[in-house]
Design a binder for these strands. Sequence first.
DNA 1: TAGATTGTTAATCGATTAACAATC
DNA 2: TAGATTGTTAATCGATTAACAATC
Lengths: 210, 210
Amino acid sequence: MAGYVSDAVIRRLPGYYRHLRELETAGVTQISSQELGKRMQLTPSQIRQDINCFGGFGRQGYGYNVTELKGHIGEILGLDRLHKVIILGAGSIGTAVARYPTFSREGFETIAMFDVAVDKVGGTVGDIPVLSMDKLESFLGENHVDIAVLALPAAYAQDTLDRLYAGGVRAVWNFAPTDLNHPNEMIVVNVHLSDSLQILSYRMAHSEDE
Amino acid sequence: MAGYVSDAVIRRLPGYYRHLRELETAGVTQISSQELGKRMQLTPSQIRQDINCFGGFGRQGYGYNVTELKGHIGEILGLDRLHKVIILGAGSIGTAVARYPTFSREGFETIAMFDVAVDKVGGTVGDIPVLSMDKLESFLGENHVDIAVLALPAAYAQDTLDRLYAGGVRAVWNFAPTDLNHPNEMIVVNVHLSDSLQILSYRMAHSEDE
DNA sequence: TAGATTGTTAATCGATTAACAATC
DNA sequence: TAGATTGTTAATCGATTAACAATC
């Protein structure tokens, strides 16, 4: 069904999912592109175009069924599957990711964390065991891992990514503040917290401009 | 100097800054749009267009001086100013933000955290005092705050944002997984960690498509 | 000077918006 | 049926890329 879908559309999908979940929780069963657009600050046209990249989930004269559309978008996002996750780095960022309740709710299960600090190795974060970084290869040999989270200093990120790739991991969620080189068949999504804060700083510095 | 600058350009600025910092650290003094483009996966044209939104920082036949350009972009991003920050929520995300070393290096100083949990109030995270949420208004009355970080559950985010606005805060960095309503003169930048993870999930689910 | 590379204008490409027939 | 709203095609708008004269 889905042919080429532009990056712009993909980046909006989680927003649709989030708003539809909120609407569902609020007991709303039906919504038009008009109303959803007002809520999400998008034009009704754009919403219909976006949704129709994946199929005609609406009905003329009615709009969209909230639960149904949320279900479709959840599937499109792959949230109907279970993802096994490991976290590299048991510092404050790694810990925050491990404890983030939303992830487990959406099918992301963290099965292990890795760190170099001897005082962390052997411990746990919540229920999650913290293993030695030296055990990474053997762990990957024995366990299927869908996603690796890089939550360690930039200086170690590239080397760790290369080890993950060699161990068969094909998807990385990167919190290290650097851009990483990776083979085409590896998917890397960056968080780059500093970038986001700098954009806030930019807007503050230029808020009088226009 | 800077007339209208598109969102697309603004979102790329932190990337320029990051790469220029890395180049400077590596001892590179000069770079052409060609080389920088190869490094950042952008066309040379785009780099020259982006930079020329703010002024002609290059020299024909030479390219750009790394340190000089980094300095200009740092200023454009407002990183030459000191920003006083408070963090709402002393959970694992708030703590991770408080401990993130990059921020203090770039001129963001966290002066207080706030939480409702009685076992956290009165304590510290690093050097930063954790105050009671009840003290927010009095704190804002006595201290200048440039940026508030929302690191609390979605259910409390809108209410807290309204209190921040009433207390004079005009910039918010939002980690709560919800979109917030805010007056025009308030600047809100969202992190939405779940969105980013869902985009990774999407790409994994559709990596065979093309 | 010759070579390189910018700054900037023009051309292209893609994403958003508008319009409207189809239809619930 | 009449009214509402989708799905989809066409028009517009904006961002990216190409080209090249200016100039270091």
